[in-house]
Amino acid sequence: MELKEAVWHISDFTEEIQRRYEEETTVKESFHYNTVDKWFKDFENKGIHYIQRVADKKVYDDLDVDIAIFIIKKRSQKWSLDAISNVLSAHLEVRPFPDLKNDEEQGLSEAQVMVEMGRKFEKMQKEFEKKILHELDVKKKELEQQLLNRLPKPKSDEEIRAEKTDIMISTVRKRYEIEGEAIEEWNKLPLEQRVKKVGFFRTEEDLLKRDNFIREYVKKYFENVDR
C-alpha cells in the first residue's frame, strides 16, 4: 500500500490534528498522544480502520487527520468512542487492512523507503550531535583544568595562620625597634626639655612627656610606612 506524501509519528500527529482542528473550528483542544493512539487502536481492533506501518512503527497521514478531527467533533458532542466507530465508515473513507502476503512479496514502497531513510538520518543526526556535545564538554573541562593548574595553589588554613603570626611578630618587633629609636631621640633633647621641677631644688624626668614623645614618634613612622 502506498503511503501519502505527509506522514507523522504519533506525537507529531497529535500536534498536527490539534493545530488543524483549531484552524477549522477556532476552538483549542489539547490531547495526550496516548489518548489519540487509543482511538486508532480501538478502530484497528474492531477491524474498521488500519494504521500504516514503517519499520514496524505506526505512521499517520492526512486520511488519519480527517478521522481524528471527526472523532474530536463527535466527542465534543458527548459521543462515545463505540458510537463513533459505528458511523465512521458511513461518513469518511477508512483504510482497509492490507494483504500481508502481497505486502511481503512487494516489499517496501518508495515512499516507505523515504520515510525510513528520514527516520534513520534523524537518529544518526541526534547521535552525532550528542557525540559533538560530549567532545565539547570534555574539551571545556580540560581547558578549565589547565587554567586551574596555572593558578597559584591556594594556601591552606595553617599557612594563612602562620603568615598572620609572622606579620604580627614582625610588626611587634618593628614597634620595639622604633620605640628604641624614639628613646634615643628623646635622650638627645636638651635636659630642660626632658625634666620637670618637683620642688625648689629638685627635678626629675618628665615621664608623661616622654611617653607622648615616643608615641608620636612611632605613630609618624607607621603613617609614613602605610603611604
Rank of each mutant, 00 (worst) to 15 (best):
D64N: 03
V195E: 05
V87M: 05
F43W: 01
I10Y: 03
K188R: 15
F70T: 04
E23G: 08
P190C: 02
W8Y: 12
Q125N: 11
G199Q: 01
F43E: 01
K78S: 13
E22I: 02
R202C: 10
I71M: 04
A182P: 00
L108Y: 12
L148Y: 14
I72G: 05
K101W: 06
P154K: 04
L208C: 03
Q77C: 07
R173W: 02
H9R: 13
Y33E: 02
N34E: 11
I178N: 01
E192S: 12
R175C: 10
P190L: 08
L143R: 13
V218D: 09
L207V: 14
Q106R: 10
E16L: 12
I67G: 04
E142P: 06
E205C: 00
D56L: 11
E216F: 08
E159M: 05
G180Q: 14
A182D: 00
K131S: 15
D206G: 06
Q77L: 11
S30N: 11
R150N: 15
D206A: 00
I183S: 10
V7H: 08
I51V: 15
T165S: 06
I72A: 01
P96L: 08
I69L: 13
V225K: 15
A55P: 01
F200P: 12
F97A: 02
F43C: 00
F222V: 07
A6I: 06
K153Q: 15
K58I: 00
V65F: 02
E177F: 06
S109L: 03
N187P: 00
E144K: 11
E192N: 11
T14R: 04
